[in-house]
């Protein structure tokens, strides 16, 4: 708790009280927005908690639940869409048993979708733990998942 308070005090000061940037730092650090962090932001910045919550829910980059060990992001930009990005999401959903924006109960995998990563020429793009993979297919993506599962065992 003390650690969170310190981190947030620093972030609020660093960004001159600008809420969005402060929340971004928290999201980056904790990989989600813990409730106590939001309460602390409200306290430290003097912004009403309801407004902090309002901003946190408005932007899709924020999450209120912890992310899995492996984060799989499928790009669903237009170019990826016409080249079959949705098929990849469908297959991953089935394989992992979760919907997009959800995390498996064992906290191993989080499945995310994104509107566009700007790598449209080599779509569909799948980002596995921060690493970009171009021209993906449902089958190539499944292979990646299976490799990660194997590694974890």
């Amino acid at each position: 708790m003390i650690e969170i308070a310190k981190f947030i005090e620093d972030a609020v000061t660093r960004h001159g009280g600008l809420l969005l940037s402060t929340l971004q730092d928290i999201q980056e650090h904790y990989k989600y927005l813990p409730e106590e962090a939001l309460r602390e932001v409200a306290k430290k910045s003097g912004i009403a908690l309801r407004d902090v919550y309002g901003v946190a829910t408005f932007y899709s980059a924020f999450s209120f639940t912890p992310k899995g060990k492996h984060v799989i992001t499928v790009c669903l930009g237009t170019a990826c869409h016409v080249r079959g990005g949705v098929r990849i999401v469908d297959v991953l959903s089935k394989e992992l048993g979760i919907n997009p924006r959800e995390t498996t109960p064992d906290l191993q995998f989080t499945l995310e979708t994104v509107n566009c990563l700007g790598c449209c020429a080599i779509g569909p793009i799948v980002v596995v733990n921060g690493k970009y993979h171009g021209q993906m297919t449902p089958q190539k993506t499944l292979k990646q998942i299976k490799r990660l599962v194997k590694k974890g065992k």
Binding site: G77, T78, A79, C80, H81, N115, C116, G118, C119, C120
Partner: peptide
């Protein structure tokens, strides 16, 4: 804030 999916000239 190049939000249009399918456009990435600004990124480049």
């Amino acid at each position: 804030d190049e939000g249009d999916p399918g456009a990435y000239m600004d990124r480049s």
